[in-house]
Write a protein that binds this DNA or RNA. Sequence first.
DNA 1: GCAGTGACTAGTA
DNA 2: ATACTAGCCACTG
Length: 107
Amino acid sequence: MSEICRLYKSIYEITDQVPYGKVISYGQIARMVGCGARQVGYAMAALKSGSHPDIPWQRVINSQGKVSVHGDGIGNAMQLELLKEEGVQFDSEGRVSDSSAWWVAKP
DNA sequence: GCAGTGACTAGTA
DNA sequence: ATACTAGCCACTG
């Protein structure tokens, strides 16, 4: 059994701290943990149902404010739907409203 | 230990 | 606005 590095733990910690109806970008988390953005995405991919069901991985999106495509795009659709259920407003392009960003306060 | 891969980002053309 | 490139760091073979 491979124990997850504390780096992943930090990533999960931040992701778990994202409030309901809010989202955060991979890059932002990467800066917080002090690692590359890819590692954040990798940590999310490592999340499995049953291991860390309490982690709102669906609230993690890319810097474009959109959901990234994984594998066949299955998880992608689920993620989008989950966010909609949480009350996150999406644009016609599938982009999240700037007000839905957690970290932030973007000009 | 090296090479390839990956749910990314930022910069340049 | 889009397309391509380079950088990023961890995991797998």
